[in-house]
Design a protein around this nucleic acid. Structure first.
Lengths: 249, 249
DNA sequence: AAACTGTATACTGTAGGCAGTCGACAACAG
DNA sequence: CTGTTGTCGACTGCCTACAGTATACAGTTT
C-alpha cells in the first residue's frame, strides 16, 4: 500500500467538502427561523428564498421538506411552507417528551459510561460554568446542549440519541428566549448528574435528569404565564397578504 | 349560510384528492421496501424508480428524502439512496425506544382516557382477537398497530404520539417476519392494559405496557438468535455492481 | 506481471421552464 | 346593499435538460 504513505501524512485540512446545497440552505433557513428573522406563521415563498440565498428553487424545496420533517415548518400542499407556530401546549408536550428521552439516556449512560466519557462530561461542564461566569449566554446555552447531547451519546443507544437530539433542537428554539435565568442551578444539577453517572448509580442519574428537565419545563411555563405574548390570535397563519420582504423583525 | 345546505348534504365522495405525487411515490417505495421487493443495502437509482413508477425524477428524489428522514433509506451525498440495512443492534435499540415511548403513552392514557376512548380500545382489541382466531396474520398485525396507535393518541400528547407512530412503523418492518407466534399472549396483555386504563391505574398500565413491549423485544431477539440469517457480511452495501432490474427477491 | 493513468459511462445535483391550481379582487345580478 | 360569478395574479408541483463527479475498465509503462 503505497497510498498509506500519503494517507498517513496527516495534516488533512478537511477540504471544504462542498456539502450538498440543500443542506447549506437547510442550515441557512433554520438559522433564519431560530434567530427570529422569520416569524412564526410567515409564508415562505420558494422563489424569494431562492433569490435571497442565490440558488435555484430546487434546493430550497428540498430544504423546506427537510425542515418540515423535523417540525420547523408546516408544508401545506399547494400552498407552500409556513414557519411553524408552536403553541404553548405543544411546547409543553415537547418538553415532556424531552424529559422522557433524556431521563432514559441518563439512566443508560450511568450503566454504560467509562472514565473517558465522564472526563468529557466534566470538561464540557467546566466550560459551561466558565461561560456562565463570563455572562456569555450563547456559549452557556451551547455548552448545555453539548452536555445533553453527550449524555445521550454515552447512553449507547444511537436511535435514542438521534431522537433526543432532534427534540432538543426544537426545545432550544422555544426555550432559548426564556433561558436567561436558571443558569447557576442548572449547572449545579449537571454536576450532580455527572457524579451519579461516574458512580454508575443509574437510578439516581435518572432521577436527577428528570428533576432537571422538569425544572426547565416549569421554568418555561412560568415564563410564558408571566408574559402571555399574544393571548389572542390562536392561529395567525400568515394573515397579511404578501410579506413582500423576508427581512422581518 | 346558504352554503351549509350544500355542505351538509353529506354523501361527499371525497373526491380523489390528488395528493401530491411525492407522497404517492413515498408510499409506493415504502411498500416495496416493507414487502421485500427492495432488499436492504440495495442501491436505488432515481432514474430507475422514476421509470418504474412512471413519473419524473423529481418526485422520486423528494420521496427518497422523506424516506431518509424516517430512517428507511440512507442518503449518501453524490452516491444516491440505499435501502437501510438494519443491524440486530439497531433493531434492539429501536425496540427499546419503542418500549420507552409506549410505556409513557400508556401511563398518560390511563390518566387521560374517557369512556369513549376505552370503548374504541375494546373494539380494536376484539377485532384483533377475531383476526387471530381466523388465522389472519395481516389483519392481526394491523389491529395490533392500530391499538398501539390508539393508546398513544389517548395519551393526549401529540408530539409523543407522532414519535411513537414513526418508531412503530420501523419496528413493524423488522418485526413482522417473526411475528407469527406470540399472538394469543399478546392480545391477553392488551386486554389487561385496557382494564388498567379504564380504572385509571397509570402505574399498572405503564407496567403492563413495559412488560408487553419487552416481551416482543425478547421474542424478536430469540428469533434472530435462532436463525442468524447472515452472520457474515456486516455491511453488504450494494456490493453488486449494477442491479439492473429492481425486482429483487 | 503489477501498478498507474487515461477514458468512458452512469448517476447525482442543480437550474430553468411550463402547466395547473388556489386565492383575491372586481364587476355584476338580485 | 348583499351575494355570486368572472378574471387576474402568483405560487406551487412537476418535467426536462445540463453540468459536475465518482466509479469501472482498458491501455500503457515500469
Amino acid at each position: 500500500m503505497v497510498r498509506s504513505e500519503l494517507a498517513n501524512s496527516g495534516a488533512a485540512p478537511k477540504i471544504p467538502r462542498p456539502t450538498t446545497l440543500r443542506e447549506s440552505v437547510f442550515e441557512a433557513i433554520l438559522e433564519l427561523i431560530v434567530n427570529g428573522s422569520l416569524s412564526p406563521g410567515q409564508h415562505l415563498a420558494e422563489s424569494e428564498l431562492a433569490e435571497l440565498l442565490g440558488v435555484s428553487r430546487q434546493p430550497v424545496r428540498e430544504a423546506l421538506q427537510m425542515l418540515s420533517g423535523e417540525g420547523w415548518v408546516d408544508l401545506r400542499p399547494g400552498h407552500g411552507a409556513f414557519v411553524h407556530a408552536p403553541t404553548v401546549q405543544e411546547a409543553d408536550q415537547l418538553l415532556a417528551v424531552r424529559a422522557l428521552l433524556e431521563t432514559e439516556s441518563a439512566r443508560l449512560a450511568a450503566l454504560n459510561s467509562d472514565a473517558a466519557g465522564v472526563a468529557r462530561l466534566r470538561e464540557v461542564c467546566a466550560r459551561g460554568l466558565r461561560a456562565l461566569e463570563a455572562d456569555d449566554i450563547d456559549a452557556s446555552v451551547a455548552a448545555n446542549s453539548e452536555l445533553h447531547a453527550l449524555v445521550t451519546e454515552l447512553s449507547g443507544n444511537t436511535v435514542l440519541a438521534e431522537l433526543a437530539s432532534q427534540v432538543s433542537r426544537r426545545v432550544r428554539w422555544y426555550h432559548t428566549p426564556v433561558a436567561r435565568q436558571r443558569g447557576r442551578a442548572s449547572w449545579e444539577e449537571h454536576g450532580q448528574l455527572i457524579d451519579a453517572i461516574e458512580t454508575r448509580d443509574d437510578v439516581r442519574a435518572a432521577e436527577i435528569m428528570r428533576d432537571h428537565t422538569e425544572h426547565t419545563r416549569s421554568s418555561y411555563l412560568e415564563q410564558r404565564a408571566a408574559e402571555p405574548a399574544e393571548p389572542k390570535e390562536p392561529t395567525p397563519v400568515a394573515r397579511r397578504r404578501r410579506p413582500r420582504s423576508l427581512s422581518a423583525s
